[in-house]
């Protein structure tokens, strides 16, 4: 599929309209912008269906070719179809959907979150063995300090100095300041990336 100038023209024009509609208080731009935003929302919803179809095809190919782990793919396909049917028949807030959430989705994801906490704890313990430098030591020290600052001990409750002074300064001073700097850099990167897409210098669509 060759690069289509029509796709680029659509992308550029829509992007300019949305941008101008944000900054220029002209009713026409605002109305068009609103309509285009609604189209984008609809397309994003349809994209969910496309993604689900992609997921189905990938695992179906795996089952058909008897690739490694095909049984798990078969289980996924079965669960997908069952949930789809239940949702269509009983609604997204129906009892069956709630049962699926309560018994499958919520426990699985909570377990993965717990696994993540163990993984991060293990990574933190091994960090100085893998990379023994000042940054790693500072990182671990900050982690330990933040954890201790958020802990309440039996009887005494919050640790006095840590909870009152160090924790707020650490959380809303250093951490927030550092995070803001990162977010500023990310925002600038997002700005130039968006402009590249706006000027068709970067086309994540349309083939070659």
């Amino acid at each position: 599929m060759k690069r289509s100038p029509v796709a680029a023209a659509i992308a550029i024009s829509v992007g300019l309209i949305i941008l101008l509609g944000t900054f220029v208080p002209i009713p026409l731009f605002a109305a068009v912008r609103l309509e285009l935003v609604q189209w984008a929302a609809i397309l994003a919803g349809v994209a969910v269906l496309v993604g689900i179809g992609n997921l189905f095809s990938v695992h179906y190919q795996k089952v058909r070719r008897r690739e490694k782990g095909w049984f798990y793919s078969l289980t996924l396909l079965f669960a997908m179809l069952a949930t789809l049917l239940a949702g269509v028949i009983f609604g997204p807030t129906g009892a069956w959907m709630q049962a699926a959430l309560e018994t499958i989705i919520f426990p699985v994801e909570a377990s993965l979150m717990a696994l993540l906490s163990v993984t991060l704890l293990y990574a933190g313990i091994r960090l100085l063995r893998r990379r023994a430098d000042w940054m790693s030591a500072l990182f671990l020290g900050t982690v330990a300090l933040a954890l201790l600052a958020s802990v309440s001990l039996p009887v005494i409750g919050e640790i006095p100095v840590l909870s009152d002074w160090i924790s707020p300064w650490l959380t809303y001073g250093l951490a927030a300041g550092g995070a803001r700097g990162l977010v500023l850099g990310v925002a600038l990167g997002a700005l130039t990336t968006g402009l590249r897409a706006l000027f068709a210098l970067d086309r994540p669509y349309g083939g070659k």
């Binding site: 599929m1 397309l43 496309v50 993604g51 994540p204 669509y205 349309g206 083939g207």
Partner: peptide
């Protein structure tokens, strides 16, 4: 982890 991103990744690899 996003459907739109998955579709675009297919198109990008094809390109």
């Amino acid at each position: 982890g996003d459907p739109v991103l998955a579709a675009l990744s297919q198109d990008t690899l094809q390109a």
